[in-house]
């Protein structure tokens, strides 16, 4: 936009964008950097929650699959609660609900963690995804082929070794396609962030709509960002499956 002719063209585009186009695209381009910051916030919180929730879900799934006498019931209650109630309500409960109690506000957790919308979101999202992940990991553990375990036992592996060398690797492989859905659902669910003041992708979209009194420019831009992110994530998982589940693919270029 240095030369005068360029500037005229830009002004021409701006004019079209403001007056004729159904979507004011120049306005969106002017604020596109904010959407990128929003995308970073969305990805940061989603990724961190998936990481924490993923790690948390493994012991929970094992305890559920082997019906641990002490932990099985409480974990069932936990997963039932988080899978049985909407994420939005869970988030409100932690963010607005806890803030009503003085003992929470006076506790040592308030200043560094619970007063911050960012941490409230990470806590709720982690617990939520851990509940979903634990349940389908449990299913995958229970469906481990008996033969694989018997073979490992016959080779003299201890219970612990069977778990870490045979059951868990096999479980992760079989759970991978289901997990890619969980990651995409989590990304979609992350729009809840904008309701507790966090400027995620949708938050920026709502800010733009609010700032210029628009109906859908912000939403459509946000939608495109989510679509691109989902495209990248599902592509990534396809590659991962290609690599991890290679032994399940039919051979194509070789004779048996």
């Amino acid at each position: 936009m240095a030369s005068p002719s360029d500037r005229t063209f830009w002004e021409y585009l701006t004019h079209i964008s403001e007056n004729q186009s159904p979507l004011d695209f120049v306005l969106v381009i002017d604020h596109i950097d904010k959407f990128f910051y929003g995308a970073i916030v969305t990805l940061e919180i989603t990724a961190l929650s998936l990481l924490i929730g993923g790690i948390l879900s493994i012991p929970l799934a094992i305890a559920r699959a082997y019906k641990h006498p002490l932990f099985n019931r409480p974990i069932w209650c936990y997963t039932y609660f988080f899978r049985g109630t909407p994420l939005l309500v869970q988030t409100y409960l932690i963010y607005y609900g806890l803030a009503q109690f003085d003992f929470v506000k006076e506790s040592f957790l308030w200043d560094p963690i619970l007063s911050k919308a960012w941490w409230c979101a990470v806590i709720v999202f982690s617990l939520n995804t851990a509940a979903y992940t634990a349940e389908f990991l449990r299913g995958a553990i229970e469906n481990t082929p008996r033969g694989e375990i018997e073979a490992a036992r016959a080779c003299g592996m201890s219970h612990k070794r069977v778990m870490f060398r045979i059951i868990l690797p096999s479980t992760f492989r079989r759970a991978l396609p289901a997990y890619s859905n969980e990651v995409i659902f989590m990304l979609h669910s992350s729009v809840v962030l904008s309701t507790i003041t966090i400027q995620d992708i949708l938050g920026v979209g709502r800010w733009l709509n609010g700032r210029y009194y628009l109906a859908y420019e912000g939403f459509i831009t946000a939608m495109m960002f989510y679509m691109i992110l989902v495209f990248i994530i599902s592509r990534g998982f396809r590659l991962w499956e290609h690599y991890w589940l290679a032994h399940l693919r039919p051979r194509t270029n070789q004779h048996a």
């Binding site: 803030a99 009503q100 003041t197 400027q199 938050g203």
Partner: peptide, 18 residues
Amino acid sequence: LVLYATQEEVFQDLASGR
């Protein structure tokens, strides 16, 4: 700047110290 959907939520978070 922290943005809210309703004015009631703004007061809620002001009261809670956020």
